[in-house]
Design a protein around this nucleic acid. Structure first.
Lengths: 120, 120
DNA sequence: TAAACATATGAACAGATATTCATATGAAAG
DNA sequence: CTTTCATATGAATATCTGTTCATATGTTTA
């Protein structure tokens, strides 16, 4: 693949060639990087963060979450869909009600790390 | 504060009142939740993920990164600004060149957790 | 079966965001 | 001090995203 910016590269490129080669060797493949960004996008919205935080404590139904956050049922349902597609939550049906709960052990850790970063 | 959706809440609310109270007690304050979402937004773009990954291996100047990712100097500079505002990288000047490097120990851990989640 | 209820979904719109383009800044070299 | 080089920045734009509104789906109860 031809690099559009190959030519406009700074003159001192040869100075950091070695470092760049090291970086290239350790860079994950494109698809994996896109998947990571997609995953972080899910965490990158305060409504979704609130939903995940809520589910730390207990499984909840859609209307519970809507009431908790003071938002519409529809808005919450749309967001739960996003979170579920990222495999961060799972759900179960109980009659008319659908309960959501965390699906992954990493959610708490990821959010915990972010919290630590912010507390510095 | 009056909850616009208080009334449209599902009838069975009283069933999960206890769970909701538990959740409310553990929910961080609004500002903290917004800050967490802001932080994750920074990770939620593949260009920025690539930049952070690159800096795992070595400090790099702006044009190194632009060449590595095949993007314009301006685009990279704009993104470095975002990452720096989130205090994830720091920089130092050496003559005309400015070198960027990771500023935080949590970056690797956060990205590592995401990677683990995706590998399941 | 009809009505009520909990949730899901599609379309639309307003607001956010990433890149480009042009240009500014700041340092070094001539 | 003028030019060159590395980087930063502001404005413009095309794309993406979160919520709303209206309505559909699927379950229970009368």
């Amino acid at each position: 693949m031809i690099d559009q910016y190959e030519t406009e590269r700074c003159d001192q490129e040869f100075v950091h060639t070695e470092a760049l080669q090291q970086v290239r060797n350790h860079m994950p493949r494109e698809e994996e990087l896109l998947d990571m960004a997609e995953l972080f996008k899910v965490f990158g919205d305060s409504t979704r963060i609130k939903i995940l935080y809520a589910l730390f404590e207990s499984e909840l139904c859609v209307c519970d979450i809507a009431a908790l956050l003071g938002m519409s049922q529809s808005a919450i349902s749309h967001q739960l869909r996003v979170i579920k597609q990222a495999k961060l939550v799972k759900n179960r049906r109980d009659g008319k009600t659908i309960f959501y709960s965390l699906a992954d052990v990493h959610v708490k850790t990821i959010i915990g790390m972010a919290k630590e970063h912010l507390e510095e």
